[in-house]
Design a protein around this nucleic acid. Structure first.
Length: 580
RNA sequence: GGGCGCGUGGCCUAGUCCGGAUAAGGCGGCAGCCUCCUAAGCUGUAGAUCGGGGGUUCGAAUCCCCCCGCGCCCGCCA
């Protein structure tokens, strides 16, 4: 039987196991009269293959105490209090101290994983995550979606960690790019294709036209000037073009299971006076000056060679100035604000943060991702050189459809289409999120269309297998509630079973880390490991054919694994398909 | 030229922040497993001077310095 009280005490997960180990270690160190320096991980705790948690603290003490690490570890080991709950035993392995999880802990993890809403972290901050924010001058391409997927996954991770998150899209309606779109609309006809693609066509055409017709540039300048002045005709034109493009972009985002909670147009901050206000505040720093007819901020003392231009010669504002106002607003309306930006924004986001510091405004946490390029070179919307997200999703869906059709030929067309859609959505997201943001990548069709182990379908498939077992088990046996009450968790002693429970326990640690470090790829790695653990369990621990009591225990584990897989997939924004 | 980032088996990547016990996966090779809960799965096998060189340390893929290669940036664009 599982200890039902544990469910109510709540949260017996990996972080609690770690807490207990820390308590045991610091207690033992005290008793020995040893002191470790303050610092991150000063107890030398580490996940490793030899133990559930290992400490190399003896190495750190050795130079100070002038004793061998082995001798120190031995002393600490002997001084460790025998009173523990989640720890089963502490082993001395030379200079290392190895901690192992107790049965009580494993059973508690299982109980928790079986409960509803088992995984909500303890963070309480209000967080604004700004992501995507692509210019409304064309469709999202395979570079943009790195921003979208990283951003949306972080939104989900932060929510899972307990935060209240607002996902925001910052719309660049005042920039030169949008002015070019309006000029493009004046000279060329929007065709009937998907809105964002149609906008891209006139935008590309206008840029091409500009090569031979310098008048185009002047027209764009006029648009910028008149929009900033609030000219109603231009305002109507820009608003309709922006809304049209954003509509198409949203459609693409929805295909990837991505939604924003709010949109902020940069013009909003010009119209409500906060851009002017920010410029005024910067003036008080004494670092601003008029140079070459433009209003500039000198950040030379802060390591920036180039001055930051706040206003053009013709008086209009620039992206960075408007962004400053937006960030001031974000900081005032959140406890944490996070920006997802491409590598080309490194310098400018540094300038932005410096300027905010001067204004005594909390800086955003900036997640920079490196570029996605094509085998033929870098992408450019302006030059029409890109693979659109829509094209990618279409291809992946087509491939997924063929795969499902081969495996489930008896199923209806609707079923195949729906599974293919959700597999494709997951495949695209996982393919992006699995790589660390600071790695530059080259887009590869072969890899995008690979549905094997290092992919979303692998994880979705594990989940579907768990569901299949549960479905079959429920048909022949009692209700889920009864099973949860009655199974004997202590029977789950197989190597694969224990490994699976431990992997399930790790979830809160991964979420906590990913939420603090803003590294969504940790969760992608975890998802693969969890699926792998489940597949081993599936392969080596038959559930339905096991003896009755073992069968019930394994059913419970299958259910716990299903919950963990489902939660992990949902946090990655990937559909947890029950059959595929 | 300067700044930032990256360099891990043939290819793609995790591990690097916070140094610890045999460098972990995938793709592709090779050899196996469907009268057995969905084979989008599982098992085994071959394959790595962790870009190069110095340094710090009891210990370096991880920290420091130099060099090489690749990417991004250095607009009154965003």
């Amino acid at each position: 039987m599982i200890d039902k009280d544990l469910i109510h005490i709540g949260v017996p997960m990996f972080l609690d196991f770690i807490s207990e180990v820390e308590l045991l270690l610091t207690g033992a160190l005290d008793r020995c009269g040893y002191k470790v320096e303050e610092g991150v991980n000063n107890l030398g705790l580490d996940l490793c293959p030899h133990a559930d948690l290992a400490s190399s603290v003896a190495f750190r003490l050795a130079p100070v105490l002038k004793k061998s690490p082995v001798a120190i570890a031995k002393e600490i080991h002997q001084a460790i209090s025998p009173e523990y709950k989640y720890v089963e035993r502490v082993e001395l392995a030379g200079p290392y101290l190895n901690f192992y999880m107790s049965r009580l802990f494993l059973n508690a993890v299982l109980a928790r994983a079986l409960a509803d809403n088992a995984w909500t972290g303890r963070m309480t901050e209000k967080v604004i995550v700004e992501h995507t924010s692509a210019n409304p001058d064309g469709p999202l391409h395979v570079g943009h979606i790195r921003n979208s997927v990283i951003g949306d996954t972080l939104v989900r991770i932060l929510r899972r960690a307990g935060c209240t998150v607002d996902a925001e899209y910052y719309v660049n309606d005042m920039g030169r790019q949008e002015a070019m779109v309006v000029v493009g609309c004046d000279h060329f006809q929007l065709d009937g294709s998907k809105a964002d693609h149609a906008i891209a066509r006139v935008y590309i055409a206008a840029n091409k036209e500009m090569e031979t017709n310098p008048g185009i540039r002047a027209e764009a300048d006029q648009v910028i000037l008149r929009y900033e002045a609030g000219d109603p005709e231009i305002t109507a034109k820009i608003q309709s073009a922006v809304k049209y493009a954003i509509g198409g972009i949203e459609e693409t985002l929805h295909r990837m299971n991505i939604r924003h909670d709010s949109y902020h147009w940069e013009s909003e901050f010009v119209r409500n006076g906060s851009v002017a206000e920010v410029v005024g505040l910067l003036e008080k720093t004494g670092l601003t000056e008029w140079e070459d007819g433009a209003y500039q901020l000198d950040l030379n003392n802060y390591g920036f060679e180039k001055k930051m231009v706040l206003k053009r010669t013709n008086g209009t504002s620039l992206y960075i100035t408007r962004d400053l106002a937006y960030h001031r607003w974000k900081s005032a309306n959140s406890d944490r604000s996070v920006d997802i930006l491409g590598a080309d924004h490194k310098l400018v986001s540094g300038q932005l943060r410096t300027a905010l510091r001067l204004l005594d405004v909390r800086e955003p946490e900036v997640v920079i991702f490196e570029f996605v390029s094509l085998p033929t070179g870098s992408m450019s919307t302006r030059k029409g050189k890109f693979i659109s997200a829509d094209e990618l999703i279409d291809e992946v869906e087509k491939q997924a459809f063929e795969e499902v059709k081969t495996r489930r030929p008896e199923e209806s067309e609707d079923f195949l289409r729906e599974v293919a859609r959700q597999v494709a959505q997951g495949a695209v997201r996982y393919d992006v999120v699995k790589v660390s943001a600071d790695k530059a990548t080259t887009f590869d069709w072969k890899q995008a269309l690979d549905f094997e182990k290092l992919s979303a379908p692998f994880i979705q498939y594990s989940h579907a297998r768990a569901c299949s077992i549960i479905r079959k088990g429920d048909q022949t046996h009692q209700t889920p509630e009864q099973e949860i009450q009655e199974f004997q968790a202590d029977l789950l002693t197989g190597e694969n079973e224990v490994a699976l429970i431990k992997k399930i326990a790790e979830f809160d640690l991964i979420i906590d880390r990913a939420a603090r470090e803003l590294k969504p790829h940790h969760l992608a790695t975890y998802a693969r490991e969890l699926a792998e653990c489940f597949n081993h369990f599936y392969r080596f621990s038959p559930v339905l054919d096991a003896a009755p009591e073992l069968r019930d225990a394994r059913m419970a584990l299958a259910r716990a694994a299903r919950n963990a897989l489902r939660t992990t997939l949902e946090t990655l924004g990937i559909s947890a398909l029950e059959t595929m």
